[in-house]
Design a protein around this nucleic acid. Sequence first.
DNA 1: TTCGTCATGTAATGGGTTACATGATTAC
DNA 2: GTAATCATGTAACCCATTACATGACGAA
Lengths: 198, 198
Amino acid sequence: MKQPGMLELPVLGLLKERSMHGYELRKQLSAMLGPFWQVSWGSLYPTLRRLAKAGAVEKLAEEKPSKRRAKTASGSLNSGRRKTVYRLTAQGEALFTELLEETAAAVDADHFTLKLAFFRYLNPETRLALLERRRAYLQEKLGQFKTNLRDYRERIDSYTLSLQNHSMAATQSDIEWIDELIRAERSIEGGAPNPSNA
Amino acid sequence: MKQPGMLELPVLGLLKERSMHGYELRKQLSAMLGPFWQVSWGSLYPTLRRLAKAGAVEKLAEEKPSKRRAKTASGSLNSGRRKTVYRLTAQGEALFTELLEETAAAVDADHFTLKLAFFRYLNPETRLALLERRRAYLQEKLGQFKTNLRDYRERIDSYTLSLQNHSMAATQSDIEWIDELIRAERSIEGGAPNPSNA
DNA sequence: TTCGTCATGTAATGGGTTACATGATTAC
DNA sequence: GTAATCATGTAACCCATTACATGACGAA
């Protein structure tokens, strides 16, 4: 991940479902967000520490199952202290909701992605608001692409032109995808009783 | 921009074309890379300072118009303001080429974009190598998406699923775009004499 | 026994973001 | 005369990256 302060939301969101230790958290994060999101230990653990300091999560030392000490036995002075399980607190729940609902940061692609991954915790109106905000942002960028190209097209070389055209097409495709999501949202809102997905 | 150390390449690349001052550099950067790339002063000027310290660019003080100017008429050809113009040095040229050619960092989307914007300075073989490296990377990610979905599909909700599907489609589209670029590269390589773009 | 995975962290480094601060010039 | 744009930077704050360091456990 690239931008600062982005891990908080997904960490809280995953811990909301169930308590986990750091290592598993990372695996779930990758599974949920796909291979482009790689979380490094050096960002995950400090995030957990910050959240713990803020009272949003608490550390639980899980006693080890190890039941058998047959072989190794002996002198290990202490046994506990293997996994550290993190659990969401009430404050953490509140923080999660706050981060999820804030519309300010919803426009940026990565922030939007993270919010979308936890959309099920939002009510339909908020979902629609976030979707429409993102859509407007993309539309604005599309317009900027066009003025940009109008003003500079002759001065940019063919590679850069190809770059911008591809980028515009991708933006257009994003918009269409958002439109689908908006349509789906409206149809469950006004139409059939909530199917609550699969 | 989000990642560290990414401004160096485009700054050197633009200064290679012609000397400029910081403010103009930023405008050119936006024009070239499109509206998703926003460069802040707080990252641009420190980058220039670093490059200057490394001897890659040199600062030229463009002298301001002798202090007092007649209101309008006199200095029509003057256009003087106190600007600091940056010029690429020989070392800077070397650094530019080095940064542009290194294949290690070429896989990441942003690095790849930046290199592509200066592809005209590379020979066709290096261009092809970079394109194919990027393609292989995307292909690999696509495979990871698939295994990921195979293993977790039942456990992810419909929003996250939509997210991943869209992300996969975008990756696929990126690959097709790269393929086009590769085809174009090969056709100028083996076929007609270099058309050197529009 | 050794290798791969599980598991938890810390330290140094670097640089991006945001806000701040200033002043000149142009257009209305 | 005043607002917008041109123009150049600095500073504090935050945090991601990378590399480092350690150790348990299961299987081959």
